[in-house]
Simulated assay, not measured.
Amino acid sequence: MKTIKLLGVFAFIALVGFTSCQSEENEQIGINPNAITPTSELAKKIKRTGMNDGAKDDFLDGNSCAELIFPIVATVNGLEITINNEADYELAVEIMDEFNDDDDTVAFNFPITVKLSDYSEIVISSQEEFEDLNQECDNASDNMESAISCAKVDFPISILTYDVNLEQTGTVVVESEQQLYGFVDDLEESDKLFSIKYPITVTLSNGTSVQINDDSEFEDALEECTAYEAEEELAEEKAEEVEGIVSKATFIVESFVTGGVNIAEDFTEYTIEFTNEEKLIARNTVNTALENIEGEYDVDSDTRVLLELDFTNETVFSALNNEWVVTAYTSSLLTLQSKTDSSIILELKKL
Rank of each mutant, 00 (worst) to 15 (best):
Thr3Lys: 01
Ile4Tyr: 01
Phe10Pro: 03
Phe10Leu: 07
Ile13Asn: 12
Leu15Asp: 11
Glu25Phe: 12
Asn26Met: 10
Asn26Glu: 14
Gly30Asp: 07
Ala35Pro: 09
Ala35Arg: 10
Ala43Lys: 06
Lys44Phe: 03
Lys44Met: 11
Gly50Cys: 00
Ala55Glu: 06
Ala55Leu: 05
Lys56Glu: 01
Asp57Glu: 13
Asp58Trp: 00
Leu60Ile: 08
Ala66Asn: 07
Phe70Cys: 02
Ala74Leu: 05
Asn77Phe: 00
Gly78Asn: 03
Thr82Gln: 13
Asn85Asp: 15
Glu86Lys: 07
Glu90Phe: 02
Leu91Lys: 15
Val93His: 10
Ile95Met: 11
Met96Thr: 05
Asp101Lys: 02
Asp103Ile: 12
Thr105Trp: 03
Ala107Phe: 05
Asn109Ser: 13
Phe110Tyr: 15
Val114Leu: 07
Leu116Met: 12
Leu116Asp: 06
Asp118His: 07
Asp118Tyr: 06
Tyr119Thr: 15
Ser120Tyr: 06
Ser120Thr: 15
Ile122Trp: 04
Gln127Val: 12
Glu128Lys: 14
Glu128Asp: 14
Glu131Thr: 14
Asn134Ser: 13
Glu136Phe: 09
Cys137Thr: 09
Asp138Glu: 15
Ile148Glu: 13
Ser149Glu: 12
Ser149Tyr: 08
Cys150Met: 14
Val153Asp: 06
Val153Thr: 15
Phe155Lys: 07
Pro156Asn: 13
Ile157Gln: 13
Ser158Arg: 10
Ser158Tyr: 12
Ile159Asn: 08
Asp163Tyr: 07
Val164Pro: 02
Asn165Leu: 10
Gln168Thr: 10
Gln168Met: 14
Thr169Glu: 08
Thr171Lys: 13
Val172Tyr: 04
Glu175Val: 06
Glu175His: 06
Glu175Pro: 07
Glu189Ala: 08
Ser190Trp: 07
Ile196Trp: 00
Pro199Tyr: 00
Ile200Lys: 02
Thr203Met: 06
Leu204Thr: 13
Thr208Phe: 01
Gln211Val: 07
Gln211Arg: 03
Asp215Cys: 00
Ser216Val: 08
Glu219Leu: 11
Ala221Gly: 02
Ala221Asp: 03
Glu223Leu: 12
Glu223His: 01
Glu229Tyr: 01
Glu231Arg: 05
Glu232Ile: 00
Glu236Trp: 02
Lys238Thr: 00
Val242Gln: 05
Ile245Thr: 10
Ser255Ile: 04
Ser255Leu: 04
Phe256Ser: 03
Val261Met: 14
Ile263Asn: 13
Ile263Leu: 12
Ala264Val: 07
Glu265Ala: 11
Glu265Phe: 08
Phe274Ala: 09
Thr275Ser: 15
Asn276Ala: 06
Glu277Phe: 05
Glu278Ile: 03
Leu280Asp: 10
Thr288Leu: 01
Ile293Trp: 02
Asp298Ser: 09
Val299Glu: 00
Ser301Ile: 00
Asp302Arg: 01
Thr303Ser: 01
Arg304Asp: 06
Leu306Cys: 03
Leu307Trp: 05
Asp310Leu: 08
Asn313Arg: 11
Glu314Ala: 14
Val316Cys: 04
Val316Lys: 10
Phe317Ala: 15
Ser318Asn: 13
Ser318Trp: 04
Ala319Gln: 14
Leu320Ser: 12
Asn322Arg: 08
Glu323Ala: 07
Val325Asp: 09
Thr327Trp: 02
Ala328Trp: 04
Thr330Ala: 04
Leu333Tyr: 02
Lys339His: 13
Ser342His: 04
Leu346Gly: 08
Glu347Lys: 15
Leu351Gln: 15
